[in-house]
Structure formats: structure tokens, C-alpha cells
């Protein structure tokens, strides 16, 4: 009787010990697993490769918690801006047929230097710095 109670206790002790180790190890191992999204790099980010963006086109990318826009001019230069329209905070896009950065909400237009040229936007877009390293394009906040 006593013997079985003792071994019962031992089983519970061993079982809960194993469960405990599992409960500790599971989060730790999950923590060690690299997450899907790349780790943060906020002051400058790699947007894409030079060849990914043909001349006369634009690309929206996520810069921290704000959208950015990378534009390649018809001549092949890269320009990057904060993609938040200065009118009502919509996200702007590159409009190939007009050759401008365009806001769909109220037809605000910016030239490829980010200057507001028509429509309601009151201010130019905030520019970012574009750095081309090898065939990779980095965008960083302008200092």
C-alpha cells in the first residue's frame, strides 16, 4: 500500500518534472527559431536590386511603420521619398503616363524631386537618401 503510494508520488513528480522542462524549453526553443520577417533595420533598409526596378517606374516599400516610395526616373536615377501625401496622409504612387508621383485620393501631383506641383498637397514630400551599393539599393533617412 505504502509502497504503491510512494511510487505513485514518484510518477507524478517525474511526470510533472518532464512537463515542467517542456513548458520551459518550448518557449525558449520557439524564441531561438528565427522569425519569418527579417530583423529590423530602420535607419536604412535594403529596398530591392537595381534590376528589379526598370527605368520610369516606382515601388512602394515599408520603411519602419510608414510607407516609402522609390522612383526610378526615365533617365535611370533613383529617388526615394516618404510616400505619405502631405495633404491627407494617403499613400502616393508613381504614375508612369504623367511622369509624376501621384496621390489617388485627390489627384495631388509631385514632380520627381518630390515637389508638390498640382492639386491639394500643401508641401513637398519628405525626401530619403538613396544609396546604391553594388546592385542593391538602400534607402536611409536623410540627415
Amino acid at each position: 500500500m505504502n509502497q504503491s503510494r510512494r511510487s505513485f508520488l514518484k510518477y507524478i513528480l517525474g511526470g510533472s518534472l518532464i512537463a515542467f522542462i517542456g513548458a520551459v524549453l518550448y518557449p525558449v526553443i520557439a524564441f531561438l527559431k528565427p522569425p519569418k520577417s527579417k530583423s529590423v533595420e530602420i535607419s536604412s533598409i535594403k529596398v530591392c536590386k537595381v534590376n528589379d526596378l526598370p527605368n520610369d517606374s516606382g515601388l512602394i516599400f515599408k520603411f519602419g511603420n510608414k510607407p516609402g516610395i522609390l522612383v526610378r526616373t526615365p533617365k535611370g536615377d533613383f529617388r526615394a521619398f516618404d510616400a505619405t501625401c502631405t495633404h491627407l496622409d494617403c499613400t502616393v504612387q508613381y504614375k508612369k503616363d504623367m511622369g509624376v508621383i501621384w496621390c489617388a485620393c485627390h489627384n495631388g501631383k509631385y514632380d520627381l524631386n518630390g515637389r508638390n506641383i498640382s492639386g491639394p498637397p500643401p508641401r513637398p514630400l519628405i525626401p530619403f537618401k538613396v544609396i546604391v551599393q553594388g546592385d542593391e539599393i538602400f534607402v536611409s533617412k536623410q540627415l
Binding site: 508520488l9 510533472s16 512537463a19 515542467f20 513548458a23
Partner: peptide, 20 residues
């Protein structure tokens, strides 16, 4: 809840074990 349950069970059995 699960984790505290496990830890509590372990602690209680350990306590009983020590008493014994």
C-alpha cells in the same frame, strides 16, 4: 494557465515529497 498548473503540480508534489 497551463504553465502555472504544471509548476504548481510540481511544487505540490515536491512539497509532499519533502514532507515524506
Amino acid at each position: 494557465l497551463a504553465a502555472t498548473a504544471i509548476i504548481s503540480v510540481l511544487a505540490i508534489t515536491l512539497f509532499i515529497y519533502i514532507k515524506k
